[in-house]
């Protein structure tokens, strides 16, 4: 009786598994995406990583929140001088949950910048920018600069007194750069004075140009993280540069620097053994 019940259950289970697996297998056979996703998400990381190593994904999450809330805010915002301020008031005071989404975008911007600095501090203090990860540090610094530019262009959009005068000062600050500064300021303003062109210009940069750049740079950043692997903390027994046998297969999961590198082949193809 009990055996029959179990058999029946397992048969149903098999059916269920087949039903779940069929679309996954279908996709995998035609694209390899499932394997790619597994390779991306279920990588081996050093055993002694901790909460400090989550700051990068926290920054990524903050950016994705900005992207999502920004897309929705763009459905209600009107980027012209006559309507911009009123449309922000409309979003905040009249539309359902508008106050929440706008608040998420506004405060999330600060969270994104702050997390970028925390992440940067972690990488710096752990020495994780060292060989072979220098390029990823450079991309990270570029991301920081581009992220600040995103904050600068977004600050004008509420089109109130604070936004206007902060942008006047910010653009004139750029204008004082030697030689090309005056031209940079005119480019940012779309002319000699802040006017009707400036708001639309900043809006386009804020929601299309710079986010596209950030997405591309994040893609490169993550690619290098996957290719080079996660670095061990400085106190790790297997910290980068410490003396241990690189050819020894990783048995305890503490694979550290060399494991992904050996897999990716740069070490095998004449890469110098550290």
């Amino acid at each position: 009786m009990a055996t029959a019940a179990r058999n029946k259950k397992s048969a149903r289970r098999r059916q269920l598994e087949a039903a779940i697996n069929y679309p996954i297998d279908w996709l995998e056979e035609r694209s390899g995406l499932i394997g790619g996703l597994r390779y991306f998400l279920f990588r081996k990381v050093p055993g002694d990583t901790g909460w400090w190593h989550t700051l990068g994904s926290a920054t990524l999450t903050a950016f994705l929140v900005q992207a999502l809330t920004g897309v929705i805010l763009a459905m209600y915002y009107k980027p012209d001088p006559q309507n911009a301020y009123q449309s922000i008031q409309h979003i905040t005071n009249d539309l359902t949950l508008g106050w929440l989404v706008r608040g998420m975008h506004k405060w999330g911007a600060s969270v994104f910048i702050i997390l970028m600095f925390f992440h940067m501090a972690r990488v710096f203090l752990f020495g994780a920018y060292k060989y072979p990860r220098e390029l990823n540090w450079i991309i990270g610094v570029t991301l920081l600069a581009v992220g600040m530019l995103e904050g600068f262009t977004g600050y004008l959009l509420p089109w109130d007194q604070t936004a206007y005068w902060a942008t006047v000062v910010g653009i004139n600050l750029n204008g004082t750069a030697p030689f090309l500064g005056p031209f940079l300021a005119d480019f940012l303003r779309g002319g000699g004075e802040i006017g009707t062109e400036t708001l639309a210009r900043f809006y386009s940069m804020h929601m299309l140009l710079i986010p596209g750049l950030i997405f591309a740079l994040i893609g490169l950043h993550l690619y290098l993280v996957i290719r080079l692997g996660v670095s061990s903390p400085p106190w790790s027994r297997e910290a980068a540069g410490s003396d241990y046998d690189a050819d020894e297969p990783a048995t305890n999961g503490r694979s550290g620097l060399t494991q992904p590198a050996a897999r990716s082949g740069w070490r095998r193809n004449g890469g110098d053994d550290v």
């Binding site: 004139n172 204008g175 004082t176 500064g181 005056p182």
Partner: peptide, 9 residues
């Protein structure tokens, strides 16, 4: 008198 320049220049 000079040609108009931006603030801070």
């Amino acid at each position: 008198k000079y040609k108009l320049t931006g603030p801070g220049e």
